[in-house]
Write a protein that binds this DNA or RNA. Sequence first.
DNA 1: TAGATTGTTAATCGATTAACAATC
DNA 2: TAGATTGTTAATCGATTAACAATC
Lengths: 215, 215
Amino acid sequence: MAVIKRMPRYYRHLAELLRNDVDRISSKELSGKIGFTASQIRQDFNNFGGFGQQGYGYNVRELFNETGKILGLDKSYKTVIVGAGNIGQAIANYTRFDKFGFDLQAIFDANPKLIGLKIRDVEIRDIDTLDAFMEENAVDIGIICVPTTVAQATVDRLVKSGVKGIWNFAPMDITVPKDVAMESVHLSDSLLTLVYLMNDKAKEREKKEKKSTSK
Amino acid sequence: MAVIKRMPRYYRHLAELLRNDVDRISSKELSGKIGFTASQIRQDFNNFGGFGQQGYGYNVRELFNETGKILGLDKSYKTVIVGAGNIGQAIANYTRFDKFGFDLQAIFDANPKLIGLKIRDVEIRDIDTLDAFMEENAVDIGIICVPTTVAQATVDRLVKSGVKGIWNFAPMDITVPKDVAMESVHLSDSLLTLVYLMNDKAKEREKKEKKSTSK
DNA sequence: TAGATTGTTAATCGATTAACAATC
DNA sequence: TAGATTGTTAATCGATTAACAATC
């Protein structure tokens, strides 16, 4: 699990190397760029098969492609967003995901003012039509942008409709059957972590100042 | 670090217990609710001092307050958002953070169409006025919602202005001086992780099916 | 006092790093 | 062949879990 959390970061950096026309890289060079140790980089990629060559390093394009395959980016995925509030709209507008092969099929909301509107050619539909829509369309991923109170119920509905992945933005811990994948983006958890780190660093600063004053 | 990543989750669950008028809880009960082992829960809180009582458990309100203090939520924080695109707007509209004590002072953007508009009473200002604004206002946290190309430069500007925390939404690895705290929300990394997990589970399913067919 | 549950130490597990032989 | 760098094994480190004495 620790390994796979690093894969998207490899993918990002390899994409950048590719854009810069770098065509080979050693684990040591990559380490300097990405911040993981060279040893860890070699270890990581070896989990999935040896993509390097002794005395040479790694071919950037090959490593990029393999990393994409490992992540599952050789396929495309149909998605729906449930909840067209702040976050739902932001995700719907975010074009970056299209390039990865994510294909937004529909957006659902309960608010009559939003129903019928389009975000980048994708219609916002009545939440009541969700189950019917899911029956007719093979959707892979459900993106949960609804309020906390209805988040679990929405997930249950989507799972029942055959979705195989849940991307959750509701600030709560969601439960899914064990054959369904789930990833949460807990914005407030991230912000609270930041604040903790800020205070931690502030304490360190104070300590240092005390030391230098007492000397 | 592993511990502090769990603190926001404790905080969230304790807040919920409080809302439900639960006033005491044992590590074992909390374990059932939150998913960490009872042993880990006791270990975690003991890092910050013993908040429990043998034979009784933990007082929910006390534990909630202490967790808040540990996270630094006994103070309030002035923030600015730089970049009023999809994500910037979504964060600006998100009221949840206000309650934690985060106080949005201003939003900055380069787009003349956006400058002058208000999101929840907070004005979108010209990015050119950023440095001047920062000089006059003691801002604690900078929220980076600008395009990747200008993300690092924006961070550098904010850090120079005395910001002590960076909350980064740009899909790249940002560098800050070591006395500044940084937390990134990498949306695409999260989505790629989800896809990996989906494929992993699909493989497991296939294996099982093969097994049951061959039997 | 007896029962419950913490705080804390020790044991285990997993992940990271170091080392080096294999080999391009 | 010599130099470079991987793949892989072994050593280290840190985090989690188990166990239990302390104590409310």
